[in-house]
Amino acid sequence: MSQCKFQRAFLHPRYWLTWFGLGLLWLLVQLPYPAIRVLGSRLGSASRHFLKRRESIARRNLELCFPNDTPAQREKLIKENFKAIGMALLETGIAWFWPDERVRKWFDVEGLENLKEVQAQNRGVMVIGVHFMSLELGGRVMGLCQPMMATYRPHNNLLMEWVQTRGRLRSNKAMISRNNLRGLVSALKKGEAVWFAPDQDYGRKGSSFAPFFAVENVATTNGTFVISRLSGAPMLTVTMIRKADNSGYRLFISPELKNYPQDETEAAAYINKVIEKEIMRAPEQYLWVHRRFKTRPVGESSLYK
């Protein structure tokens, strides 16, 4: 599990640019939230000029997932998606630097009783997450409602690893490397709630191909299935979206997921349907710039050519 320890080496000149960026982010999130919202949207819109490759990936993902949408509908979604990208940067600063009382003013929760009902039975629970742009802030908000653990990929920059871990542990218990299967299962068996996001392409190894929106064969991690079998933990989803009326955020916690299949491929299709439903709460806020369909079945050509 990730530890949160400052090192004197972080003062070395190699980290000065990182410190400058973190200082600027801290300064920006001291603004009133409405100003942060405007600034984030404008930064995101401006970033389209520098993130052309990511824009093309988002456009292709939307073409594949929603083939019946018109080009105009997809372009509108991409426009809003890039505004969400800009907000994601500032929401990360909010998650890491805002005090609890300020964060609490800007969110409400729907379904907290669903999580408490499962945990009241002294059972661990696997919390299925989705990569919305507000994910970092969503973790902070979830921790204020019910502290939990989360799987993650350690940052290559040691200073950023310290900062993000320190920020994430402001309201949560621990971070577990996504490669630490034993630690994850152990935490669930001890009754902990552990966040896990199975909605990205982690490659062919350890994956099954299952439908996702209109794409028939999508590499879907078997991690959810393996963890479920080893731990026996029930599952539910937690998703946070930004409200359209600029009044903050809403955290959605679903009832316990039922009838989870006992076959890997069927389980992958099941969890993809769950993720689809969550994405449709606010599709413009989802991480469409990720190459979700880069891994193809043997013999199939890339969908991104």
Rank of each mutant, 00 (worst) to 15 (best):
V274K: 01
A72P: 11
I85F: 15
A269V: 01
G203S: 04
L158H: 15
E101N: 06
V298S: 10
L137C: 03
P13S: 15
A214Q: 08
R250H: 09
S177A: 14
M280Q: 00
L28K: 03
S171H: 12
R37Y: 10
E264I: 05
N157T: 10
P297W: 13
R14I: 13
R140L: 05
L159Y: 00
V218I: 04
L43P: 07
E278W: 03
A193L: 09
E136T: 06
F10T: 10
Q119I: 09
M142I: 12
H290N: 11
R102A: 12
G40R: 01
R291Y: 04
R104Q: 11
F209W: 04
M160T: 07
V238K: 11
K205Y: 08
A72C: 10
K5V: 11
E113S: 09
R182C: 05
C65P: 01
F213N: 09
M87C: 13
G86A: 02
P67Y: 01
V130E: 10
D69M: 13
S207D: 06
S171M: 04
I85W: 14
Q121F: 05
R178W: 10
V130I: 12
S177Y: 03
G248Q: 11
L184G: 05
F196D: 04
L137R: 00
G129N: 07
K79W: 13
Y304S: 04
T237K: 12
G203I: 05
P283I: 09
I279P: 09
R104K: 15
H49T: 14
A233K: 12
V125Q: 03
A268W: 03
K205E: 08
D201P: 06
L144F: 01
Y249K: 06
M160C: 15
E264C: 05
G223S: 03
M148G: 11
L169Y: 02
I275M: 09
F10G: 01
R60P: 03
G248D: 02
E256P: 05
D263I: 00
L24S: 02
Y260T: 05
R229P: 06
A88K: 00
W96R: 14
L257G: 04
T224P: 05
P283K: 00
P71D: 14
Q200C: 05
E264L: 04
Q121G: 06
L22M: 14
R178F: 08
K205Q: 12
G86C: 02
H155E: 12
F6V: 03
A72S: 15
T70S: 15
N172Y: 01
W96P: 04
Y304I: 08
D201L: 02
R74L: 13
Q262L: 10
M149A: 14
R182F: 06
G223P: 02
I36S: 00
G203T: 01
V298H: 11
L287R: 10
R166K: 13
L28Y: 09
P261I: 03
R166Q: 09
K305G: 10
L77Y: 11
